[in-house]
Measured scan of single mutants.
Amino acid sequence: TRVETATETAWISLVTALHLVLGLSAVLGLLLLRWQFPAHYRRLRHALW
């Protein structure tokens, strides 16, 4: 049971790290898009909202 718990903890930390990385890359990508294509971003936002 001790090994299982350790594996579970490792998986949880791995998944958390993955989610953090994905979230950060998504935010960075959005910022980059907004910085590179302001007109396109505004049009996209206008279409979405």
Rank of each mutant, 00 (worst) to 15 (best):
H40S: 09
H46W: 04
F37K: 03
G29E: 03
R2N: 11
H19Q: 03
T1I: 14
V21L: 10
L24Y: 05
L28K: 04
R2F: 12
I12N: 05
R43P: 09
H40P: 15
I12C: 03
R45W: 00
A6R: 11
R45D: 00
V21S: 11
R2Y: 13
V3M: 07
F37R: 07
L44N: 05
L22S: 10
L31S: 11
G29P: 07
W11E: 00
R34I: 05
T5W: 00
L28N: 07
G29A: 14
V15K: 03
I12W: 03
S25A: 13
V3K: 02
L20Y: 03
R43E: 04
L33W: 06
L30R: 02
E4L: 10
L48V: 10
L33M: 12
V21Y: 02
W11I: 06
T1R: 10
V15I: 11
Q36E: 09
L44Y: 03
V27Y: 09
R42M: 11
L32I: 05
Q36M: 15
A17R: 04
G23N: 08
A26D: 03
L30M: 11
A47Y: 11
T16I: 14
T1V: 12
Q36G: 15
L20N: 00
A10R: 10
T7A: 10
H40G: 14
E4T: 10
L48K: 00
T16F: 07
W35H: 15
L20M: 12
A47N: 10
F37G: 02
L33K: 03
E4V: 11
W35F: 15
P38N: 14
G23W: 06
A10F: 02
L20T: 07
H19Y: 04
L30H: 07
E4G: 09
L44G: 03
R42N: 12
H40Q: 14
S25P: 02
E8L: 05
A6N: 09
G29S: 13
Q36T: 15
G29Y: 01
H40K: 10
A10D: 06
Y41A: 15
R45L: 09
S13K: 04
V15M: 06
L32N: 08
T9Y: 09
L24R: 06
S13I: 10
A39I: 09
